[in-house]
Simulated assay, not measured.
Amino acid sequence: MTMGLTLIKNGLTYTPSPIGKKDILVCENSILAIDDEISKDSVITLDPSALVIDAEGMLVAPGFIDCHIHFNGAGGENGPQFRTPPLQLSSFIRAGITTAVAPLGTDGVCRSLKELLAKCRGLDAEGITAYIYTGSYGYPPVSITGDVMSDIVLIDKIIGTKIAISDHRSSHPTVTELRHLISDSRVGGMLSGKMGLVMAHMGDEEGGLSIIREALSGTDIPKTQILPTHVNRNSKLFTESLKYFADGGYIDITTSITGNDGSISPVDCIAMAHNKKIPLSSITLSTDGNGSIPIFNSSKEIIGMGIGEPSSLFSTIKEILCNTNIPKEDVISLVTENVAERLKLTKKGRITIKGDADILLISISDFSLQYVIAKGAVLMEKGNIVRKGTFEGLAQ
């Protein structure tokens, strides 16, 4: 009887904590065993069709979690022709992303949460794990059921809420409105066993993080309930974010922000935080992948347009591993364990027995991605994508 076994042998394993060379046995979509030696012959006896992967010379890590990626498209700031299209499965595989969480972007009018939810379930069927946020840039927040609390409680794939603040494209919610949103998202999470995280898109406006500080002030709501993202979009905001750490805050750095035009590259951000002895466990990385990146002049008129790259997540981790002396476990945690803790995804972000079998194999010699395993299935083998989305490769 086929059991769906996969044996990974001889890999230098990071859970993300370093545990040395280990063999890992996967049964269907879960990790069954981790040991110094698991007999290949015994596995083949149990399951003659078992896959055995020799991970000698490879670093074994948990699959990456992207907590802010626009997998159903975003944009539209310069007209309908600037709406980005949905992402295909191969974009996630190439980036080592085995879990993805998507919000709506600027457009909460023509883009719908129902459509986003359908794309989410489609990606789940194609091979990775996907979730979404309710809400969008604006306030009052858009929702499926009528309010964000009900969305989080009643819809399995909705695990938090999106809002934009300190941005000329936002609705400029008041402190009371933001506090109300955070509270509703938190209670929704409590009632459903989820985190109910508020993902706060940060813009360039002078107010920065002050509205978050004010909204949480005088309450018992922990700072883990809200995660400001894009904090590396300008040096003033990032400097403010470093102070936010001192008060127990958490931040998300965007890997699609390259460090041009006054922004700070994600690699420089992590190096700065490490040099200031800020615990990297307070930081996550996400891509803003597939989101439009409009370029504005001083009058906030669009003068150019870019797009966030999902591949920037893996390339950023690779660059940090190659060019800094930051411990590998701290670097890997930025896109695995840290994110899983922020989102309360208890079976994600770690290589552990009974955890989800989302695993990456990375060449130690050049840090190239060699294998991607999601839900126990091999999606990339020896650097080649072996599973594609439903419509990839079909004639146009």
Rank of each mutant, 00 (worst) to 15 (best):
I364F: 01
E28S: 08
S311I: 15
S166H: 09
L51M: 11
A33P: 00
D268L: 14
I353S: 00
I332E: 06
D35M: 00
P310G: 09
A374D: 04
Y131T: 09
V60E: 03
S281G: 03
G189D: 09
V378Q: 03
T219G: 06
I317A: 02
Y244K: 00
K114N: 12
D124P: 00
T284A: 01
L51D: 11
F92L: 08
I152C: 02
G20F: 08
I53E: 05
D151S: 00
F296M: 08
L285D: 04
V335S: 08
I19L: 05
A102G: 14
I158Q: 04
G76Q: 11
E341S: 07
N297S: 06
N72Y: 15
V142M: 06
H68C: 10
M202W: 10
G208R: 08
A130K: 04
A374L: 04
S150H: 12
D261R: 10
T287V: 09
G248K: 05
G189P: 00
Y250P: 00
K276I: 12
S368C: 04
I165T: 14
G96T: 01
L227T: 06
E28A: 07
P310A: 11
S166Y: 12
K9Y: 05
D288L: 05
S217K: 14
P140C: 13
G76Y: 11
G108Y: 12
T352Y: 09
M58E: 13
P310W: 14
Y244P: 00
N275C: 04
I44H: 01
S90Q: 11
R350V: 13
I211L: 13
D288H: 02
N275V: 05
S311C: 03
L313N: 04
P327L: 10
N275A: 15
L154D: 14
T346H: 12
I53H: 02
G75M: 11
F92Q: 02
M202I: 14
R179G: 03
M190K: 13
T258A: 02
E77F: 08
I302W: 10
M272I: 15
P228T: 15
E329I: 04
L117Q: 09
D220N: 15
Y133L: 11
I253A: 06
D66T: 03
I251C: 03
S170P: 06
M190N: 11
